[in-house]
């Protein structure tokens, strides 16, 4: 295909995105604004539930070094194809809900999203606590801190970079997979991709892709900003001078956790 065709397509996508009519709801079509909010809602619920499960669990496993098999078990979930799981749960659950409600699609979607979000948060939280230098926890114990004080006063703040990197990769996965929820079919930005495909309306399909990518990037930047505010400079290594070594160490630790065997 000629590049002229590509340029033309990019122009069409741009005009699809900037047409204010596409952002408003009409009796026939749901607009971008509504779908965007739905997408954000699904994603927030999933990351929230996953965090509520995986964070305390990861902290507990890292602090006590007990039940580490749970981390390996959660990581094994990563080899499940998300779309297959989504279809399976939908055909299992959806028929039990009748009427105009979309609960029958929301429940399987949220289950899949939560299952996807748990492994990165759990394994990174665990790795974060596990990576805290033994000298630091030894010193904390030696000065008379109790288990809870060590966990919340030392281990948690020290593992925040890794925990954030877990939450960020979970959020990205959830936003990406929430797109596929439109395949089952549910609202969200994926609607434009699958509807565009169905109707051979490629500007709409590609416009949907642009929106999903933009949402993912925005969410990641937002989390990066929060991370900057929450993580101590002593750990992130953002001080005026001679801080390179610490920053490198943290980066290296993050990479290690991301590359954890699936």
């Amino acid at each position: 295909m000629a590049t002229g065709g590509a340029g033309e397509m990019i122009g069409q996508v741009f005009s699809w995105l900037t047409d204010s009519a596409h952002w408003r709801d009409t009796p026939l079509d749901t607009g971008i604004t509504t779908q965007l909010l739905a997408h954000i809602k699904f994603s927030l619920i999933a990351v929230g539930i996953a965090g509520a499960i995986a964070l305390p669990l990861g902290l507990f496993i890292g602090h006590t070094r007990r039940a580490t098999f749970l981390v390996a078990g959660a990581n094994a979930l990563r080899s499940l194809p998300s779309v297959g799981l989504l279809v399976l749960l939908t055909v299992m659950i959806a028929p039990h809900f009748h009427g105009r409600t979309d609960v029958g699609f929301v429940i399987p979607t949220e289950i899949v999203l939560v299952l996807l979000a748990i492994p990165p948060i759990l394994s990174n939280t665990y790795a974060g606590v596990d990576n805290v230098s033994p000298a630091v926890t030894d010193a904390a114990r030696g000065m008379g801190m109790r288990g809870r004080q060590i966990l919340f006063g030392v281990e948690l703040p020290c593992s925040l970079p890794l925990i954030f990197s877990g939450i960020r990769s979970a959020t990205l996965q959830v936003i990406a997979t929430a797109t596929i929820a439109s395949f089952v079919p549910l609202g969200g930005l994926g609607r434009f991709i699958y509807d565009g495909l169905q109707q051979q309306d490629y500007p709409q399909m590609i416009g949907g892709g642009v929106l999903v990518a933009a949402l993912a990037l925005t969410a990641d930047m937002l989390l990066a900003l929060i991370q900057r505010l929450v993580v101590s400079r002593g750990i992130s290594g953002r001080f005026s001078k001679s801080g390179g070594a610490a920053a490198d160490a943290v980066d290296a630790a993050i990479t290690r956790a991301e590359v954890a065997p699936v």
Binding site: A135, T137, A139, G142, V154, P157, G234, I235
Partner: peptide, 14 residues
């Protein structure tokens, strides 16, 4: 008082 080999200072505190 307790002092150990690598000091074990809390990296997140000044």
């Amino acid at each position: 008082g307790y002092v150990i080999q690598h000091a074990g200072l809390f990296p997140h505190r000044t």
